[in-house]
């Protein structure tokens, strides 16, 4: 029998993988994918809580999160492309022209 706790643990694991991915990986595309993982962990959490509380609010919020994630993907990929055109790299360690 799956309980609320199972879903929460699952989403916490996915969220941690996402955070670790953003902090550890140096490829911007992989970092971006990790960000999406974080948002998907949020969606699992919302769906689980929504079912547990027998409310629609959480499920409605999921739609907003997905819409925003899509908009973010469009802008983020465009920014990464514009960076690549300027510097020929998408390695996060090499985007360090500003210091101080």
């Amino acid at each position: 029998m799956l309980t609320l706790a199972h879903y929460l643990v699952l989403s916490a694991i996915i969220f941690s993988i996402g955070i670790a991915g953003v902090l550890i990986r140096r490829n911007l595309i992989v970092m971006f994918m990790s960000l999406e993982l974080m948002l998907n962990a949020v969606n699992i959490n919302l769906a689980a809580f929504s079912n547990y509380l027998q409310q629609m609010t959480g499920q409605i919020f999921i739609v907003f999160v997905m819409a925003v994630a899509a908009a973010e993907a469009a802008v983020g990929l465009a920014l990464i492309i514009s960076l690549f055109r300027n510097k020929q790299t998408i390695n996060a360690d090499e985007i360090n022209t500003m210091r101080g």
Binding site: G76, R85, K87, A92, I95, T97, M98
Partner: peptide
């Protein structure tokens, strides 16, 4: 500017 945009985004 591109660098700043990407950093802000991430």
């Amino acid at each position: 500017s591109a660098e700043s945009g990407v950093k802000y985004f991430i």
